[in-house]
């Protein structure tokens, strides 16, 4: 029995593509990253969630050897990034912050440039990655004529060139339109289904929820929690937002129900764009009760414009995790 479990643990360890253990970084005497540890397994989409300034980009820069950690260890496919960067980076494709490219070269020349820095990448592979990201028609144009979305695609193509086991994307949806974001999600899932691990940072909980299997939550240079997305998000208050034709009557009806808790205006932190123009009544309640409450309202002659559930924001999640301590 013991033997079997040991074997299972070993194979689980082999499956770890990226292992970060108690990494710290001081810049100019200031601790920027206080303690970051997590593991990314093969074939999973790993989210790295935190507000702006929490240390996401600094951590990512340490993963790809742009910054050297003050202490701690980073292993990529078992190779120490500090001691054998050549061996470790062979398994990584990445976009750090914005997708950069040489604007005076064409897309193709950019890919050729980065292919020359890898081993065994031929023109067929360059054509292949250009086709994967759907850039084949414009690949021979100068990059300065590209839109942000196309630069993003070129960046991903560049990152995929060396057939990496781990793809690191830093805020990949930044600057993309909704259609682009949807395409990116599908693309990420497609890559993961082929066995690639993805490490995606974001400050938007909804984005991580839609894309990732597991997530690490970072705030002020510390990882607060690592777990599956469901584990971490489950239990966070789901809000139900009501909009009535007669807001006052609706509010009174909801307030009269013992299972419904009205949330005051200043407490909910729901993005205003989600609420729309009409006055909304925000409640904390079990979503199962919605249909019976709707029935009640209709019987009372109160017209309902909309009812919808709003997932908790990152802000709320943090409030729960840090027990009221505000995030910076």
């Amino acid at each position: 029995m013991q033997y079997a479990s040991q074997e299972a643990r070993q194979s689980a360890q082999q499956d770890v593509v990226l292992s970060v253990s108690s990494v710290k970084k001081q810049i100019g005497g200031k601790p920027i990253i206080k303690d970051v540890s997590f593991e990314v397994r093969s074939g999973e989409i790993f989210g790295f969630l935190g507000p702006n300034g929490a240390g996401k980009t600094t951590t990512i820069r340490m993963l790809v050897n742009l910054i050297k950690p003050t202490s701690g260890e980073i292993l990529i496919c078992g190779e120490d990034i500090g001691r054998h960067p050549e061996a470790a980076l062979r398994h990584v494709g990445c976009i750090v912050e914005n997708p950069e490219a040489y604007s005076y070269l064409t897309g193709w020349e950019n890919l050729e440039h980065f292919a020359r820095m890898l081993r065994g990448i031929d023109n067929a592979r360059i054509r292949e990655v250009a086709a994967i990201v759907g850039l084949d028609s414009r690949i021979h144009d100068k990059v300065k004529t590209y839109s942000l979305g196309m630069r993003q695609r070129l960046g991903i193509a560049q990152a995929l060139l060396g057939r990496p086991k781990l793809l690191i994307l830093d805020e990949p949806t930044n600057g993309l339109d909704p259609k682009g974001i949807k395409e990116l999600r599908e693309f990420v899932r497609m890559l993961a289904s082929q066995g690639m691990s993805l490490f995606i940072s974001s400050h938007l909980l909804s984005e991580i929820q839609l894309m990732c299997d597991r997530v690490a939550i970072i705030s002020r240079g510390e990882v607060l929690a690592v777990g599956t997305v469901d584990e971490l998000i489950h239990g966070a208050d789901n809000y139900v937002v009501w909009q009535f034709e007669q807001p006052e009557a609706g509010r009174r009806l909801l307030a009269g129900d013992g299972d419904v808790e009205l949330v005051p205006e200043h407490e909910h932190q729901i993005d205003e764009s989600l609420l729309g123009m009409r006055e909304a009544v925000i409640t904390a309640m079990n979503p199962d009760r919605i249909s019976s409450l709707v029935e009640k309202a209709v019987r009372a002659g109160i017209g309902i414009v909309s009812v919808h559930c709003v997932a908790p924001t990152l802000e709320q999640l943090f409030l729960r995790m840090t027990e009221g301590e505000s995030i910076g």
Binding site: A88, L89, E100
Partner: peptide
């Protein structure tokens, strides 16, 4: 300035 140094230094090259 162009940020391409990040691409350059994250390739498996010393």
């Amino acid at each position: 300035t162009s940020g391409t140094i990040k691409m350059l230094l994250t390739r498996p090259v010393r």
